[in-house]
Simulated assay, not measured.
Amino acid sequence: MLPELLQSTDAGGLLIIRDFASFSGRHLLKSFINASLNRNEAVHVLGFEISKEELKHGLKEPNNQRLHIHDAFSDPLGWTDHPAFTVQQFSFEELTHLITQTSQHKPVNLVIDSLSWILRHVSPTVVCKTLQQLKKGGAVRSIIGLLHADMHQNGTVGSVCHLATSVITVTPGTKRDEAVAKITKRSKSGKVMQDEEMFIINEDLTVTIQNKPNHAGSKRTDSEEQESDPTANLTFNLRLSDTEREAKEKLALPFVFSKEKKTALLHSGPGSGRILYEPDANDNYDQEDPDDDLDV
């Protein structure tokens, strides 16, 4: 599933790369930037955590006119007189103006490095509202954001990931250069797909899928399944043999009437009893007013 996400980004999509201190997801983020440039798509990058030169390192044609890196690393809080980009500009109106002013292309891909830096200075509610507004279209075609999960509370991480159409959680693999990607993708119909892949990022920032990670104990042998059978050590048998099953099918249940029994109950034969009522003089029965004897 990771190669499919690299090959194309859905319009209106929000892809979150969630990493931890044990493994950085920035190289995978730059792989997505390179993949967009290879598709001749315009890319705008908000760089908060590393310099503009370091962001360009390894990217295809760093001087490409379709690549716009907005330096938010030099002065992210606007302490100087002429800051390039500040965290206060992270709003739908400001970003739309910035993108339309510096790009003449059709809707672009917005890359945020990283959302964690913004969440430390802007309310999570405001960040989620801005992301939701950007998802609806306009100047931005899709959004790719890096999120350091161990820097925030679970509720904040969950709120941001809930907005995402795809979440890639990266963790270190068994070997030095390998990493594991746990992917959750939500389609427009609401279907959720999950996958887990082991990958390597090459020097040219291309991604090579190795294989599926092996989980010890995920598969059990037949003997193990037999030992875990809860009916194995019972003192009585819960299963029927063929002979017992045949005898059970022939058994007549007490509340199931046969055809002969129904006929005998519904049609009285000779000698059956009947109740005859003959009123006497003391009955005082009036046919015109059967309820005459009632005090109503």
Rank of each mutant, 00 (worst) to 15 (best):
280 D>P: 00
223 S>R: 13
99 I>Y: 05
172 P>F: 05
176 R>A: 15
146 L>K: 07
257 F>L: 15
83 P>G: 08
40 N>W: 03
120 R>P: 00
107 P>Y: 09
294 L>M: 10
7 Q>K: 12
186 R>S: 10
86 T>P: 03
105 H>Y: 11
198 M>F: 01
66 R>T: 04
199 F>Y: 15
197 E>T: 12
162 H>Y: 11
254 P>M: 05
263 T>I: 10
119 L>F: 07
218 S>T: 11
111 V>W: 03
148 H>I: 08
256 V>S: 12
210 Q>F: 04
14 L>Y: 14
152 H>S: 09
142 S>Q: 06
120 R>Y: 09
70 H>E: 10
105 H>N: 12
83 P>R: 01
57 H>L: 13
181 A>Q: 06
295 D>R: 11
250 K>I: 01
281 A>M: 08
296 V>I: 12
177 D>A: 11
49 E>P: 00
99 I>A: 02
222 D>C: 02
181 A>D: 08
138 G>L: 11
68 H>W: 10
216 A>N: 10
44 H>K: 01
119 L>A: 09
186 R>C: 08
174 T>A: 14
16 I>C: 09
34 N>I: 00
98 L>D: 08
7 Q>D: 14
98 L>T: 15
83 P>K: 04
235 T>S: 13
131 L>I: 12
104 Q>Y: 07
187 S>C: 02
40 N>I: 00
48 F>P: 05
240 L>E: 10
251 L>P: 00
4 E>P: 00
96 T>A: 02
285 Y>I: 13
100 T>G: 10
112 I>M: 03
161 C>T: 15
19 D>I: 06
274 R>P: 00
279 P>E: 02
